[in-house]
């Protein structure tokens, strides 16, 4: 009798443990989805700022058309991307193009003094921060999910929870990669 109770108790504990491990995977998977949605929201915000920004800069620096075109083209690409890799690539290009645009504005003191531009600049730099924190949060969540998928005992429930390892959000930023130039 005692043995049966003990066996049942152990089985119950094991079952509970299994359920918890499986739930951990499901939850981690949901967190990754939510984190990706946050990146999307912030990218959309940034994208909404661009027409206004381009118009404002155009008013002071109409002949810098190549810079505007780069920004507008990158924005168009960003709105159509869906997979993590595509979104990340388009995000990287738009970040680059915006950096170019802001570099151009350095040459126009009138523009830099305009209150409209200052407000836009604050909005844009805050949105850039939000985008990069959203990326970081997404990657942290992917890290948690992927390590739960690989480690025991949650690794046993990958199939039943219907989760797969997710890709990291990697922005290809030439500024990060640039090797220091050596001159002789």
């Amino acid at each position: 009798m005692k043995v049966i109770v003990l066996v049942i108790a152990i089985l119950l504990i094991l079952a509970l443990y299994a359920i918890m491990s499986r739930n951990r995977l499901v939850r981690a998977n949901i967190s990754v989805d939510e984190a990706f949605a946050q990146i999307d929201t912030q990218l959309k915000r940034r994208s909404d700022l661009i027409p206004n920004l381009v118009e404002t800069v155009k008013g002071y620096a109409a002949h810098e058309s190549s810079t505007f075109e780069a920004v507008i083209a990158a924005r168009a690409k960003a709105t159509t991307a869906t997979t993590v890799a595509d979104v990340a690539a388009a995000d990287g290009q738009l970040t680059q193009a915006l950096r170019g645009l802001l570099a151009v504005t350095e040459n126009y003191p009138d523009l830099k003094a305009s209150t409209n531009f200052l407000a836009l600049q604050e909005e844009l730099s805050s949105t850039e921060n939000k985008v990069s924190f959203a990326r970081q949060f997404y990657n942290d969540n992917v890290r948690t999910l992927n390590s739960a998928i690989k480690t025991f005992p949650s690794s046993l429930f990958v199939k039943s929870a219907g989760v797969t390892a997710r890709p990291f959000y990697e922005v290809d930023d030439p500024q990060d990669r640039k090797a220091p130039q050596v001159k002789f």
């Binding site: 967190s31 984190a35 946050q38 912030q42 604050e122 909005e123 805050s126 921060n129 939000k130 924190f133 959203a134 970081q136 949060f137 969540n141």
Partner: peptide
């Protein structure tokens, strides 16, 4: 206070 609100929102996104 737009700037303060932005600042706090940024950190909240980082923290989820």
């Amino acid at each position: 206070n737009k700037q303060l609100y932005d600042l706090v929102t940024e950190v909240c996104i980082a923290a989820g």
